[in-house]
Amino acid sequence: MRAVRVMQTLFKRDFLYSLYSFGYYVALFASFIVSSFILKNFLDSIGEEDILVSAYPLNYPLYITLIIISLYLVIISGVSISREREQGTLEVLFYGPVTPGSFLWGKYLKDLCLGMVALGFTAVYFYFVSLLTNLGFTLGLVKALIMSIFLLSCVVSFGLFVSSFTGRIRSSVLALVAILGAFLAIQLGYNALLGFEKESLSVPMLYVRQTMSYVFRGISWVSPFAYLNRGLDSVVLESPLLYVANIGYAVVYSLVFMFLSVYVMGKKGVKA
């Protein structure tokens, strides 16, 4: 019970400070600007062709909004431990009743709640968009918004994991950029190789493509952004089983990365 109270105290302080931070609203504003731009193009094409081609017209703008919110969350969670390590404040917290578990779960809750508040703003924004454009605020959109909570959980736990083994803000940012960049490069490389006919590839290139397919499959279980794609796809596919399964995968992913983070933080200690 005491650990829960410690976690609540850490959560309350961090959440209020983050909620008053400028960067949070910049990220939200940027996501709304980008999705507004996409919506405008979408509406223009409907106007030109006089046809609505999607049953979920707001889901793609939501996906883009989610990507931007996720990028913001992965960075702030990715530097949250290393910042306190670098400033030395982590050491002072650990003189007392704070443990790696209570500290990390407090940070996780804070970042997830920030994500949920952002989703709340997003829901309000899309509601007004649906009123203005007659694009339906469908059940599919509601399901996508609910799924998004779990997907943001993956993003936050991944960011905290990266932060757990880095000692300084700069190294956290570099680690995040390197890891996410590597995920993206592998995905792009694999997609590029898939574009070639099997017969046109030499034997070594075929081995490379096969190896990359294994790596890609592995990454699709490690990268939080892969969960984002799969989760939102499950909404469009309208399969309840797939939807629940994706929520389950996201929960397992979050738990695994949180436990790993607690372990790594315990090993790495409080010093930068």
């Binding site: 005491r2 400033q87 030395g88 050491e91 002072v92 003189y95 007392g96 009743p97 704070v98 443990t99």
Partner: peptide, 15 residues
Amino acid sequence: VAIKRRVGVVSENQY
């Protein structure tokens, strides 16, 4: 943490 709650610490740097 039960023991740590009974100890007060001041370090050289205040962080």
